[in-house]
Write a protein that binds this DNA or RNA. Structure first.
Length: 418
RNA sequence: GUGGGUGUAGCUCAAGGGUAGAGCACUGGAUUGUGGAUCCAGGGGUUGGGGGUUCGAAACCCCUCAUCCACCCCA
């Protein structure tokens, strides 16, 4: 055990895993651009109030999971626990809404929540998120969901379920909440301890309880969809019709609840059975009230976030394009090393990926190393070749070898490998 | 924050009071200058840390730390 180790819930991402990360990120950049999104990068540190205002004072995130501390000047600051509030903050701070009516933005980066780590849950985790600000049309919900499903399609991640629900709006949610409380009041004694607490703080959460007793009671609870106001009902209907039109499979999940206060109307999750208890790989929804809550004009918006660690676990490593090494230079002895070293740099100047062995160790070891690096060709230069004024180029898969004159070595190699 | 599991070689794991082991990986050799396969050899450990019981502890007890899984919650 080394003296220092990373903090609990904080993980190193090592080279063998990074291939999958980079592949996911590059597909994300491509796909999001295809759908008309621009990237935005916001700081990881923000004023604490940004999150308490947006996420909600009574949520778990704000109550017990934020990395909050006092800065040297006395200001309370927080490592961002999620990406939406900072994006909206930037949108307002830079008056983006005044320039064009609506924005499609995406971001990637680390988020921080002080939770107990478990499978698929870390204290520093990474998200790719997308936000569409300034459009109420249900078609926008559909477009965003089509982006989400398209991305996972390109990642070749299968067996995902898109669950959608409507959480209503400030007009209809209080009604629904009251109806829910009226219903659960009859069974209050039969609910679990947690749900008895939820009854007061957030009755919607009872719908999400995993205990069998509560599940049974919740099964007959009033559905949020039956209590939507006319506008929300129409919106939800249009979203479903749009998904049908695009043949995007989904499941209406009346018990789907979101943990952040700012969500309204459409809410959704992309879930899998392959990740244990933390089964959501992506989630999001509408937040039509957030921009206004943060001091801007009434502005509808919708977004989602993808959990990178969870996504990476679902990626089949075989799908990731392997990075190959075209050429490995194997010099035998000091003189050969002196010849090949400048050639190595010349090749790299031509952007030819190449690697060179240690001239002081045996050919066998160098071959072994070349093989491990996945080299397609090995260039061998020993004493015999030096006197002949040639080098041997070995094809590692066919084992065929050819001699190349030293006088034209650089030209021959750069022509062959560029 | 609560509960349970697990900490032994770089990795995966044996040894359940009596000399710390195997497989894989690594290094070298069989092949004085040719990779993957095979065979042989070698290097590597204060058994997570601390304390206790014992003639003797990797093992039993206590504390602590780490880690995993689950609850909670969420990406």
């Amino acid at each position: 055990m080394s003296k220092f180790a990373s903090l609990r819930g904080f993980k190193d991402i090592l080279p063998d895993e990074i291939e999958r990360w980079r592949w996911a990120e590059s597909i994300a950049h491509e796909t999001f651009a295809t759908f008309g999104f621009s990237q935005i990068r916001t700081p990881v540190l923000e004023t604490t109030e940004l999150f308490t205002r947006s996420i909600g004072e009574a949520t778990d995130i704000v109550e017990k999971e934020m990395y909050t501390f006092q800065d040297w000047d006395g200001k309370m600051v927080t490592l961002r626990p999620e990406g939406t509030a900072p994006v909206v903050r930037a949108y307002l701070e830079h008056h983006l809404g005044a320039q064009t009516p609506f924005w499609k933005l995406y971001y990637t980066g680390p988020m921080f929540r002080h939770e107990r780590p478990q499978a698929g849950r870390l204290r520093q985790f990474h998200q790719i998120g997308a936000e569409v600000i300034g459009e109420i049309d249900p078609r926008q919900d559909v477009e965003l969901l089509s982006l989400l499903t398209r991305f996972f399609e390109r990642m070749q991640v299968a067996d995902l379920t898109l669950e959608i629900n409507s959480l209503g709006c400030p007009v209809c949610r209080p009604d629904y909440r009251a109806a829910l409380q009226a219903y659960f009041e009859k069974y209050l004694q039969e609910l679990c301890e947690d749900c008895q607490r939820r009854f007061k703080t957030n009755p919607l959460r009872i719908l999400d309880c995993k205990k069998e007793g509560c599940k049974a009671i919740a099964r007959n609870a009033p559905s949020p969809i039956d209590h939507l106001c006319a506008e929300c009902r129409e919106h939800f209907k249009s979203v479903r019709e749009g998904l049908d039109l695009l043949a995007i499979p989904y499941q209406v999940e009346p018990h789907l609840v979101r943990g952040l206060d700012y969500y309204t109307k459409t809410a959704f999750e992309l879930t899998t059975r392959k990740l244990g208890a933390q089964n959501a790989v992506a989630a999001g929804g509408r937040y039509d009230g957030l921009v206004e809550a943060l001091g801007g004009p009434p502005t509808p918006a919708i977004g989602f976030a993808i959990g990178m660690e969870r996504l990476v676990q679902l990626i089949d490593p075989a799908q990731v394009p392997a990075s190959r090494l075209p050429l490995f230079l194997a010099p035998l002895g000091k003189a050969a090393g002196a010849v090949l070293f400048p050639i190595l740099l010349a090749l790299r100047r031509e952007n030819i990926r190449s690697e060179m062995g240690n001239a002081n160790i045996g050919l066998k070891s160098q071959m072994k190393r070349a093989d491990r690096l996945g080299a397609e060709y090995v260039l061998i230069l020993g004493e015999d070749e030096m006197t002949r004024g040639t080098a041997i180029l070995r094809n590692m898969s066919t084992k065929a070898q050819e001699e190349i004159p030293l006088s034209t070595l650089t030209e021959t190699l750069s022509a062959k490998f560029s």
